[in-house]
Structures are given as C-alpha cells and as structure tokens.
Amino acid sequence: MKNLRLLGTLIAVVTLFAFANKPMNGDRLNGVWQTGNGKAKVKIEKIGTKYYGKIVWLKEPIDPATGKAKVDKNNPDAKLRTVPLKGYRVLKDFTYKNNDEWGDGTIYDPENGSTYKCVIKMKDANTLDIRGYIGVQALGRTDTWKRMKTN
C-alpha cells in the first residue's frame, strides 16, 4: 500500500514536471535568428500563447529603387505596401508541438508577397529548420536559420 502511494506520488510529480517543462521547451525558440541567406535577422518572441517573429535587421535596409527604407511593396494587400519591412512580423501564430517542433504557423516572404504554412524544427540550440509549404509539407522549401548571440 505504501509502495502504491509512493508510486502515485512519483507519477504525479513526473506529470507535473512534464507539464511545467513544456512551455520552457517551447520558449527555446525565443531569440534573434539570422535567415539562411544572411540578409535578415528575425526576432522570435512569445506573445500570449503563440510565437511570432519580426524582422529586426536587414543587410540592405535601403531600397535602391527609391533610396528610402525598404517597405513591403509586394504585399497583395495594397494598404500594407507602405509598411516598413523592419519590424514586419513574418512569422505568425506558432505553437509548440513537442520534440523541438513548432507548428500551426505561417511565414511571409516579402520577396514575393506570399504567405506559406510553416513548421519550425530546432536541429540544435543554435539552428532552426524553417519549412514553408503549400498544402502538404512535401511541397515546400526549408531554410536553415542560425541563432545570434544577444547578450
């Protein structure tokens, strides 16, 4: 009987620990990341229960065609075409799934104004595989992002 009680307590502790640990795992996504081509840095942060990523740095911040800061000129929504790219939220609505994977989100590509479904996998503490896809993951492209030192 004593043993059963001990086992029950152990299970409860482990379960609690697992639940308590889950958001911590998810928060490992937070930070500043450099995109695969090195042209941008994206800051990922948790807002509410979801993860979002915004552009915080551009290698070429000035549009050579206008001589002004780059804006989201390819956005299909005409109202957003004057919004500066710096500060633009390109990753949206990600939730932590488990096994170092975040899903249910989207990624926006300012180069062509398209928004794709997206899944993020953490390969190691400093590397993310960001896969944007259409419909099914097989129809997609993976970009590898690298973590930046922030302190």
């Binding site: 500043v32 915080v56 740095w57 957003l80 919004v83 939220r89 973590r147 030192k149």
Partner: peptide, 27 residues
C-alpha cells in the same frame, strides 16, 4: 483572444533596431 497579430508593430513605442546591428552568430 489573441488569435493572430497584425504584421506590424503593436506597441506604441518604436523598438530600437540599432541594438541588432552588431550581433554575432551564437555558433
């Protein structure tokens, strides 16, 4: 209630982006 967020900043205060200028790769 936060279903999704708009693509632009939702805070009144503009972020100081200069702090991201000289970051180094973690690895």
């Amino acid at each position: 209630q936060i279903d999704t967020l708009p693509p632009t900043q939702d805070t009144a205060a503009e972020e100081d982006f200069s702090m991201y200028e000289n970051l180094q790769l973690a690895d």
